[in-house]
């Protein structure tokens, strides 16, 4: 007997949370074939599973390997749902993020998790990757009309690049148009304030939530 939409949504969330990549993709196929709403499957099922994984990470139940496998399951199932998602054009909530690891640093696990978290918060994310030159942040912010810039570094030696990027945003008249957040091992709230960023959070899940709040507040 065919499963109900609610059952499948719950099962997809669980499959993501339990790192079951094949299971998550198979459930997504079943969900799409049954003709259920793909966006709802993403936001209520997969994304909630990923959010829960993020919470378990904050609670130190999950660590990086578990999060990677959850995100594999999440992305695998998202790929199944994505072609069936109606693009929201009039919700007024479409938000665009540009993220990257600053120049000189190649530690990008945290940034990759932020990308997933931002997507679950409803952002279109342009991921510039790691070791990203300052100018690329500026160009991408302008090109994609970004609401949000997130930058990270794990190294004390490259922290200074964050301040440089904020200065360049100012020089290019872009600073007032975007919310800027910074993160990574050596970064702190105090450092964010010092260099004139809008926010800092110690982990990707809370950073993505804060990004959403700040962007919505910035708009109103």
């Amino acid at each position: 007997m065919a499963r109900s939409k609610e059952e499948l949504i719950a099962a997809m969330g669980n499959a993501v949370l339990e790192m079951e990549d094949e299971e998550a993709a198979a459930l997504a196929e079943e969900y799409v074939e049954a003709g259920y709403d793909a966006m709802e499957g993403l936001t209520e099922g997969l994304a909630k599973g990923m959010n829960r994984a993020g919470e378990l990470y904050e609670e130190k139940e999950y660590f990086i390997p578990e999060l990677l496998l959850c995100s594999d399951a999440f992305y695998g199932a998202v790929d199944v749902l994505r072609p069936h998602i109606q693009k929201k054009t009039d919700s007024g909530e479409q938000m665009t993020a540009v993220i990257g690891v600053v120049e000189g640093d190649t530690h990008d696990i945290g940034k990759n998790i932020l990308k997933i978290m931002l997507e679950t918060e409803g952002f279109d994310v342009y991921d510039l990757g790691k070791d990203v030159p300052t100018q690329n942040f500026i160009d991408a912010a302008r090109e994609h009309n970004a609401d949000f810039i997130g930058m990270s570094t794990l190294m004390t030696t490259t922290m200074i690049k964050m301040s440089e990027i904020i200065q360049e945003l100012k020089n290019n008249g872009l600073r007032d148009r975007v919310v800027v957040m910074v993160g990574g091992g050596p970064i702190s709230e105090a450092y964010a304030d010092k260099i004139g960023a809008d926010g800092y959070e110690p982990d990707a899940a809370s950073a993505a939530r804060r990004a959403r709040e700040l962007v919505l507040a910035h708009r109103s």
């Binding site: 790192m19 990086i64 390997p65 990677l68 496998l69 594999d72 696990i109």
Partner: peptide, 11 residues
């Protein structure tokens, strides 16, 4: 590769 090894701890 770091991510591959972390995944392989399970896979």
């Amino acid at each position: 590769g770091v991510e591959n090894v972390l995944r392989f701890c399970y896979k």
